[in-house]
Design a protein around this nucleic acid. Structure first.
Length: 935
DNA sequence: GAGTTTGAAACT
DNA sequence: CAGTTTCAAACTC
């Protein structure tokens, strides 16, 4: 990843100072007012903590990042506070720079609603550096600040469609004021802006952490109150500016008006903003359907949400209209993707609504706002401390964190799923807000320009949005994996961003947090000067810090250039050297909704390259897969692997078995249970679960055929203890799965994964899997992906290919392809979901998978053959003895199952099934063999 | 805490 | 690409 480069380029000069500040990664955080809070947050907590909280925590975590230097914090946090105070004062400068208008028109509603915001960034603007990096930083930072400050300061104007812009603006302002006041009164809380500003960050964070809606509401209210007060103060002064801006906005108006919903149209034009807005609107509408009275207010709020989002964008645009262009597209894309997906999917929105139906639309909006605020708060804490704080990362990180957290949470238990989803959606919205900001900036720029230009811009944005989807996937993948290092990004930009410092740290922490607290781990390099991949810090893209015991360390901000150069060199050798080693699968859809709440599915994160363990059996931390809580996969060349999901499943199963009966010993003994399980489960469709551990076994696709069979058939029911064990056992699954789920959901749209999975049914699951494998996949994403992987792998058995759904997921487009392809995706998904749902998201896997995919596709078309003996990894590949039987048996059902799947999930991305099948199949096969031998 | 083991990274 | 060396983490005592 080029992250270093990016970081560098953006903030060349700042690097030194930034690096200095960053160098003591811990120090900045500690120093920051929130540092204590952040420090208190442990990675472990993240996992356990509410999604929101985690997300935030994660944000705070990445003090040491290469990127951090790039981003100039410029005392963001301080600036924010200052801004806040200034806002209260109502500086003219602020007025001049800050005023931004957003215009959203809701047909149903009276007319045009204009949100005018004053940006707080005036100071920032003045401070803004010409460098793109700064712009980016600010851009990023702005979102946070904007979120916090905006909510507080933004002034909303409700404009009737009056010809006179000025009048309309004024009227709108008045209306908004009234509205807000009404809100306040309704809320019954008047918040002192100063207090809010001073104490808000912590409070908001805590509240968010608690993820209590009430708290969120309160904050929102407070923020709104402040915003109102502030807005009023500024309002008068800003009016003129607003009017001018409104004019600009009007340019958009025609387009908007052209469509039923001016706002929606506008938002649609802005890829990032649209989804969120639409979702919100839909949400509001839904709510309205429930209660008419609230509807109006709801719509109002919805519009407000939209506004807020748009505002953010606008603010950004205003603050740094140009910056937007420079502003990292990749980041924006990523954010957009995330937000878009989450938002786009009605399911999530619905989930939110369902979870929060009680809550008024306000609360939701507020939540969003709060989230954004949290992000803001977090960012300052994390980055703000140092002058160099990286705003960008914070924003991004926040989103990611929030998502990840949400995901992890969701996976944790079905019961919490809804909540998690809600959180996700909220988080996504926050993300969107960020994106929107970016988009908004773009849009904003365009706004000023003639409509034609605007349209073009919008179009461009849309295109970028589409692209962002890919980025998003990659991002999510990166995020999801628990592994410390992982941040693989397929695309250079994305990789850069992701891999680059703050994000990297963030991700890592996130990942690592889930399980261990490894995030705090530091290197102990003695000879490499922390400039080689031996150094975990260096490999993770972060600077060494105090905790490190390294000697002669050059991985410090002071040596940024050296570090970057070294990184470049390493990357030149291996472009993916700094990519996340572990990729998280996209799938695991089923997890969330299972009746049991047992989502057992393990996460299917995978190690990109796979381990090469010889003696540790992949059961010790020597094994990267194991260390990353990832099951060994096809890519692994390990010997005697017992790790994994796949194996782990066995392992887990065995443990379970042992626990239950106490008869079976740990380790492979499980094999036996597996068999039993397989048979029983095979027979019992109900047991089929997407992620059965058994499936994932560590054969790594060597024994494709066998694995396949197993995977298909062995899928343990979600309810089954095995699944539960595996799930409980491995922390990993939860994390990855969540992210994946999100992606899937988003991609799907409103599709209900659970229902889908169920619909697919365990009955057909096996058959589907078989069929899927057997049937050619013309559209198989894997093909598209086609990467340069080793051909040996390609040659490897079909089973592998079939098993590896991840390849599909691997490529950013993979999921898309799947989605696009009616047939393939569905079956795979089913498989994935039911089997594991692992890999679609696996970035690391992508490489391998991608390579394999093409052949796989070909192979898949072919009937299930005994897989080639040789595994891609060269691991032992024994012909699947049982495969034939299994395959034969399964084949029958497959066809029917496939049809079914197609119907049920046309748009779903296929994911894990193949992969899981592979890995699991191999291991399962091995296990079987072993068991046999044992027997 | 020292020594050993382990496997990835780097090198040839 | 395979084999070897180097390295640091993980592990053991």
């Amino acid at each position: 990843m080029d992250s270093p480069k990016l970081s560098k380029s953006p903030i060349p000069s700042a690097s030194a100072s930034a690096s200095a500040s960053i160098s003591s990664s811990s120090s900045p955080v500690q120093e920051s007012p929130f540092s204590n809070y952040i420090s208190s947050l442990s990675p472990i907590k993240h996992d356990k903590a509410p999604h929101v909280a985690q997300g935030f925590v994660g944000l705070s975590s990445p003090p040491l990042v290469f990127t951090s230097p790039r981003i100039n914090t410029l005392g963001r946090p301080q600036s924010s506070s200052v801004k806040m105070s200034q806002k209260g004062v109502g500086d003219k400068k602020i007025i001049n720079e800050s005023c931004i208008l957003e215009r959203s028109v809701t047909e149903s509603q009276e007319g045009l609603v204009t949100d005018i915001k004053n940006e707080d960034n005036k100071d920032d603007v003045a401070v803004q550096l010409g460098s793109s990096s700064e712009c980016v930083d600010e851009y990023l930072a702005d979102p946070v600040e904007t979120d916090c400050a905006k909510s507080a300061y933004s002034v909303k104007l409700k404009l009737k469609q009056s010809n006179n812009v000025l009048q309309s603006s004024v009227n709108g302002l008045l209306d908004l004021k009234n509205i807000k006041f009404g809100r306040k009164n309704n809320v019954g809380r008047e918040v002192d802006a100063a207090q809010f500003l001073s104490g808000r960050s912590e409070e908001s964070i805590e509240r968010k952490l608690t993820s209590d809606e009430k708290l969120l509401k309160i904050e929102d209210e407070q923020g709104s109150a402040q915003g109102i007060s502030d807005g009023f103060q500024k309002f008068d002064s800003d009016r003129f500016d607003l009017s001018s801006k409104e004019k600009e906005c009007k340019n958009f108006g025609p387009q908007k008006d052209g469509h039923g919903d001016g706002c929606s149209n506008f938002l649609q034009q802005l890829p990032g903003s649209l989804p969120g807005v639409q979702s919100y609107e839909g949400f509001a509408k839904n709510i309205g359907g429930d209660a008419d009275a609230p509807v109006h207010s709801m719509t109002h709020e919805a519009s407000e949400l939209q506004r807020s989002m748009s505002r953010r964008c606008l603010q950004f645009g205003e603050a740094q209209p140009e910056a937007t262009a420079a502003c990292s597209i990749s980041t924006n894309r990523a954010n957009n993707i995330i937000s878009s997906t989450s938002l786009a999917t009605n399911s999530e929105t619905e989930s939110l609504s369902s979870s929060r139906l009680d809550l008024s639309a306000k609360s939701r909006t507020r939540q969003l706002v709060n989230l954004s605020q949290l992000a803001m708060n977090m960012s300052p804490q994390c980055y703000g401390k140092s002058s160099l704080t990286v705003l960008k990362p914070s924003g991004i990180g926040l989103h990611l964190n929030s998502i990840v957290n949400a995901i992890s949470m969701g996976q944790g238990g079905t019961a919490s799923m809804k909540v998690a989803q809600a959180i996700k959606s909220t988080s996504t919205t926050s993300c969107q807000s960020t994106e929107n900001i970016d988009n908004g900036s773009d849009a904003f720029e365009k706004v000023s320009t003639p409509q034609g230009a605007l349209e073009q811009k919008v179009f461009t944005i849309a295109g970028s949005a589409s692209e962002s989807l890919f980025a998003e996937e990659s991002v999510e993948f990166h995020m999801t994996p628990n592994t410390k290092r992982k941040f693989s990004s397929e695309d250079g930009d994305r990789n850069d961003i992701l891999s680059s410092g703050p994000l990297m740290c963030f991700y890592r922490k996130k990942l690592s947090n889930n399980t261990d607290g490894d995030c705090c781990k530091r290197c102990n390099c003695k000879k490499t000067k922390c400039l080689k991949l031996y150094c975990d810090c260096f490999a993770a893209g972060i600077y060494c810090a105090e905790p490190c015991s390294c000697q002669g360390c050059f991985n410090r901000p002071e040596y940024e250039e050296t570090v970057l150069e070294t990184r470049k060199q390493i990357e030149s050798r291996n472009p993916l050297a700094f990519a996340p080693k572990i990729v998280q699968p996209v799938t695991e859809f089923p997890l969330s909704n299972r009746e049991d709440g047992n989502r057992k599915t393990p996460s299917s994160a995978r190690h990109k390259r796979g381990c090469n363990c010889k003696r540790s059996m992949c059961l010790k931390k020597y094994c990267e897969c194991y260390q990353a809580n990832v099951g060994c996969s096809i890519g692994c060349r390990c010997e005697g692997c017992k790790n994994v999901y796949g194996k782990e499943e066995d392992y887990c199963v065995t443990k379970e078995m042992v626990n239950r009966s106490g008869e079976i010993s740990e380790s492979r003994v499980a094999a036996k249970p597996k068999k039993e399980i397989f048979h029983s489960e095979l027979c019992d469709p109900y047991h089929l679960t997407p992620l059965t551990p058994s499936v994932q076994c560590s054969d790594h696709g060597k024994n494709a055929s066998i694995s396949r069979l197993f995977s298909r058939r062995c899928l343990p029911s979600p309810e089954s203890d095995l699944t539960v064990l595996s799930y409980a056992k491995s922390p990993r699954s939860p994390r990855t799965s969540d992210s994946n789920d999100i992606l899937l959901e988003t991609s799907k749209g409103n599709l209900d994964i659970d229902s889908f999975c169920e619909g697919i049914s365990y009955n057909n699951a096996v058959a589907l899997a078989d069929e899927f494998h057997c049937t050619p996949l013309p559209n198989h994403p894997s093909v598209i992906i086609g990467s340069p992987s080793s051909k040996a792998r390609e040659l490897t058995s079909l089973s592998r290919v079939q098993l590896d759904p991840r390849s599909r997921s691997l490529t950013p487009g993979g999921s898309l392809h799947w989605h696009s392809s009616p047939i393939m995706p569905m079956s795979p998904l089913n498989d994935n979901k039911k089997l594991q749902g692992l890999d679609s998201a696996d970035g690391g896997l992508y490489d391998i998978l991608e390579d394999d995919m093409p052949e796989i596709l070909k192979d898949t078309s072919m009937p299930i053959k005994p897989v080639k003996a040789g595994s891609p990894n060269g691991k032992r590949v024994s012909p699947p003895h049982n495969l034939h039987q299994l395959g034969s048996s399964s084949s029958g059902p497959l066809r029917s199952g496939r049809k079914f799947i197609l119907k049920a999930v046309p748009s779903f991305p296929p994911l894990t099934p193949c992969i899981d099948a592979k890995g699991s199949s191999n291991q399962s096969r091995n296990n079987f063999q072993e068991n046999r031998s044992n027997d």
